[in-house]
Design a protein around this nucleic acid. Structure first.
Length: 720
RNA sequence: GGAGCUAUAGCUCAGUUGGUUAGAGCGUUACAUUGACAUUGUAAAGGUCACUGGUUCGAGUCCAGUUAGCUCCACCA
């Protein structure tokens, strides 16, 4: 007796049969009405996990359902190059071989990167195919393939022509480990117990008078350019306009007043360090304060970290942690510390590598988002969200949007397609008149110096700059291909709620901006599978469940059914391996039930009619009516993306209404009921196919060899 | 500080538009077994649907509030 729903080899054979039959392929030339589904491209790191298995199972069920309903279905697959994540993962691996970006250099590193890409990429295909995804593999897209690179250049060029791009030195969140700017959305906060230092700044000319500030980061005192107090500070107001002495550098800095200083925090006075804090950056800008950098992009102290005139009075090269304790010691020595408090606060860390993020000023590219977001807000109602309330959440976020920082100091990504004339000293300002060309390849024209001394911008684009275009680039944008005409906007897209702002909001904005259209008609947010404590599955926690293991243990169809049972829109579920096994087991048993029903109904068919009239018994009529009801219910549930209800309905109908009650009741009048038995069973098989494609196809092939020779169950007409 | 989600059987979850005795899987208990199926069947135990109030002929379902948990956004000198 089989342990799984079907032997692996049988599943493989069936998949191969489908694929060779060309049933996965969309046909833009066909007369059939289109139904297009877009696979969220998994990140090119590691293997596919339970969340992917969930997404792909849902997509596949819908695709199969629509195909059976006679649509020309396009299930478009692809993979995301996952800029920062991929680069981080690769660098970690390289570190084990004692290699690094620096050691390898760009070209050698890229070679490694492409090899790593291949490795991951192939692993993806295996998982996809074994779980039965009926995607049109001939149209698969990788976000870093050349055609997409060309599309991204067009995207960039259009933004530029529309005056929506700008480049400049702004304060950004910088991850020293990844070596790049990241966005607010790519940070998370870690609660940390640190110290809050109350530091005294002596008032110039009055050695006994001080302005005291509270800071958690004494190492940034080197880059202070002012002290700000809130307006009307009872103690410090009198010093506004005076100078105070920086207790580390000895520099004189002004005391200013600013209403952004919180009078309830610390002493009501704030040191202003425009180079290393976003709020200070703004205050500094508004007060025309100079900007200093005491910390560099690698997280080490710069030459500004001088606390005396001596050659050795420097912290240059110190890490931030080292500099902090050293600064504390020096301030103590100098009597500049009034007190130190225990202080628990949240520290921003890089979501990818958990390194503390340093705000600093860097030269980056930005897209002006206000108008783009406004248009998205205007049209977002045209998208049908499941669950409904996500529409408002996205709309809220869009209304509070800020400019999008799109450049990343990485190598794995779409290179910014901007070429500067090497000799024209592009400097740090980029304006429309700059000697600059937007181009995928090196421009062939002469630049201002008369030769072709073009150099390309060193940075790459944020990975979401290309994935935000996913619904467009997968259909050949900006070309108006026949695929684009037929399949855009997509009928269905889904994702985990985690990336609704990073990704979903971007796709909506970009499609409306460039094509005046929503990117998809239905947007489905599935819930997440969490561990019993409600934590996300992660490598570091080791709490993940490998979909491959479930598949091996119970069979693909059993795993798919389990995932559908957890697919209620927007509902998370807490599971562990045991709970998943229990569900899988019940669906594996269900598959066995189907096989046994098939054997009973078809193989143990009565030879002769047993004298009963072949006319229908009252039970038969009732059963057929009930079947009609089930068809309606299931169709309705799938149309409403309630796969969990569809699956539930079929499970209890087939097992408990049909097998347990009806089939039992026909044993005394078997011949008379035979026709109805076959009708109910084959119809159920058809209805189950989108969810349990392998078992149902396998049974169908055996029971209906004649029909199956012409066409598999996969494209049998959906019952009405 | 702002927003959202969740609370139903021992566990994990369903419960479509408010309508008789609130469901499933697993678990528990008793019984059944040689003609499709022990990967089974029959039956049973187990729920004041978080709490309080409201709307209604009628509320797990709608409204308000309370409590608890989770998530997101903003801020964190």
């Amino acid at each position: 007796m089989a342990q799984t729903t079907l032997p692996k080899e049988t599943e493989q054979k069936i998949y191969q049969m489908w694929e060779e039959g060309g049933y996965f392929k969309a046909d833009p030339d066909s007369e059939k009405k289109p139904y297009s589904l877009l696979m969220p491209p998994p990140n090119l790191t590691g293997k596919l996990h339970m969340g992917h298995a969930m997404q792909h199972s849902i997509l596949d069920a819908l695709a199969r359902f629509k195909r059976m309903q006679g649509y020309d279905v396009l299930l478009l697959p692809g993979v995301d190059h996952a800029g920062i994540l991929f680069e981080g993962t690769l660098n970690k691996q390289l570190a084990k071989e004692n290699l690094s970006k620096q050691k390898l250099g760009r070209d050698a590193w890229m070679e490694k990167a492409w090899a790593f890409k291949e490795e991951n990429y192939n692993a993806f295909h295996n998982t996809w195919k074994v779980i039965g995804v009926s995607a049109d593999w001939s149209r698969e897209v990788f976000t870093f393939q050349e055609s997409v690179q060309q599309s991204v250049v067009e995207e960039f060029r259009k933004f530029w022509d529309q005056g929506l791009l700008y480049k400049g030195a702004y304060i950004v969140q910088w991850c020293p480990k990844c070596g790049t700017a990241i966005e607010d959305l790519e940070m998370e906060y870690e609660e940390r117990k640190e110290k809050l230092y109350y530091v005294k700044y002596a008032v110039e000319g009055k050695s006994e008078e001080f302005v005291t500030i509270a800071t958690a980061r004494p190492e940034t005192i080197f880059a202070d350019s002012a002290i700000a107090v809130y307006p009307g500070h009872p103690e410090f107001q009198q010093y506004v306009g005076s100078l105070v002495i920086n207790p580390l550098t000895g520099a004189q800095i002004p005391v200013i007043e600013d209403k952004r200083v919180d009078k309830d925090f610390g002493t009501g006075a704030l040191k202003i360090t425009p180079g290393h804090d976003p709020l200070d950056y703004e205050v500094g800008r508004d007060h025309d304060l100079p900007m200093f950098h005491a910390i560099d992009k690698t997280g080490h102290m710069t030459h500004l970290a001088m606390y005396g005139d001596g050659k050795d009075d420097t912290m240059e090269g110190f890490t931030i942690t080292e500099a902090r304790s050293r600064s504390e010691a020096i301030l103590q020595e100098r009597g500049a510390i009034e007190k130190i408090e225990e202080y628990t606060h949240s520290v921003p860390v890089c979501e990818r590598c958990k390194t503390t993020v340093e705000p600093l000023v860097s030269e980056e590219w930005f897209v002006k988002m206000k108008d783009i977001a406004a248009k998205a807000i205007e049209h977002i109602g045209e998208i049908n969200f499941a669950p409904k309330h996500y529409e408002e959440m996205l709309s809220d976020w869009l209304s509070k949007i800020h400019d999008w920082s799109i450049s990343r100091s990485l190598w794995w990504g779409h290179r910014i397609p901007v070429w500067y004339c090497e000799n024209s000293n592009p400097g740090h300002k980029v304006g429309k008149d700059q000697d600059l060309v937007i181009s995928f390849a090196k421009p062939e024209v002469a630049c201002s110096c008369g030769a072709q001394n073009w150099v390309q911008d060193e940075q790459v684009l944020d990975t979401w700059f290309s994935s935000g275009m996913w619904p467009l680039v997968t259909l050949g944008w900006p070309e108006k291909t026949k695929e684009f005409t037929k399949y855009f906007p997509f009928d269905f897209e889904l994702t985990s709620p985690d990336i609704r702002y990073l990704w979903i909001a971007r796709m909506i904005m970009l499609a409306l901006h460039f094509e005046d259209s929503i990117p998809f008609k239905n947007m489905f947010f599935h819930g997440r599978l969490l561990d019993l404590q409600g934590r996300k599955f992660s490598k570091s926690l080791g709490n993940g469940i490998d979909p491959d293991e479930l598949r091996e243990a119970w069979g693909t169809d059993a795993m798919r059914m389990t995932l559908y049972s957890y697919s209620a829109p927007g509902r998370d579920a807490k599971v562990n391996r045991q709970i998943m096994d229990e569900r899988c087991k019940s669906y594996r048993n269900f598959a066995t039930k189907l096989q046994n029903l098939a054997r009973f109904i078809y193989e143990l068919k009565p030879e002769e009619t047993d004298g009963e009239s072949s006319g229908q018994h009252e039970d038969d009529t009732k059963m057929r009516e009930r079947m009609q009801g089930v068809i309606k219910e299931v169709t309705g549930y799938i149309d409403g993306f309630q796969l969990h209800l569809a699956v539930d309905t079929l499970y209890s109908f087939v097992w408990h209404e049909f097998a347990d009650i009806y089939v039992e009741s026909t044993k005394s009048r078997r011949a008379q009921a035979q026709e109805t038995l076959e009708y109910i069973f084959s119809t159920s098989l058809t209805l189950l196919h989108p969810f349990m494609p392998f078992v149902t196809e396998d049974i169908y092939q055996r029971l209906y060899p004649e029909e199956a020779r012409k066409a598999p169950l996969m494209i049998k007409t959906w019952p009405k």
